[in-house]
Amino acid sequence: MKNNKPQMNRREFIDTVSRKVPTWLAFVSAFGAGELILAKDSDYNPEDHDYAMGIEIHNCIGCGRCADACKNENKVPREHSYFRTWVERYVIPPEGEAIVDSPNGGIDGFPKLKEGTEILRSFFVPKLCNHCAEAPCVQVCPVGATFTSRDGVVLVDESYCVGCRYCIQACPYGARYLHPETHTADKCTFCYHRITKGLLPACVEVCPTGARIFGEKGRRSSPLRRFLRFNDITVLKPGLNTQPKVYYAGADMEVR
């Protein structure tokens, strides 16, 4: 995807335009730009999209850039108990319980393991809202302030949410929190404001190892389609039948 190099860069473009196009025409086109953008927006048809995300656990290096970028992009409070996405570290010793942690969601990196910790296997797992097709949070919202959009993203209506927190209780993945400033439920939107403009979600944009794959299930050309085709896929807590749209490749049995 990142090989889609633009045909012409801005300097070249301005160069060419200034040579070939009369100045007055440039003015006219500049005034028309606003309309052009609007036209493009209204071209967006949510029915044509079906967003989902893939997570390649073997690619995740636990750098926490996703969680950091998410907070930047979505103005998520910087405190340690509000996350739209976070990274968990799993350390599975030869015997005994798995050790899991996610200090500050992984944003500041992970501390050294306790001296002498034996590791059988270990890995990182990025977590976020699963945008369930059968979302329990949507089911329980008493007023219709959280809903599944036509393009398959679970969103929160900030100006309609009453702040009863039933959705937070109903989410099996701990993906929701009550925003301390708006006093409404808040969570990952797949960066709805970006994806509807053709950009990637911030976490996917900054993931340096391609551990997060964003796309559309229904689109043959989507990188997600390829991810789903060539991996053994699991979802989190499948027993709850929430039908998540965040798919994991390489998720260990200990991941929950």
């Binding site: 340690h80 108990s81 509000y82 968990e88 050790i99 942690d101 977590k127 701990g174």
Partner: peptide, 10 residues
């Protein structure tokens, strides 16, 4: 381990 959003009781 608790999910980071779970520190606060709602």
């Amino acid at each position: 381990y608790i999910y980071p959003n779970e520190f606060e009781l709602h």
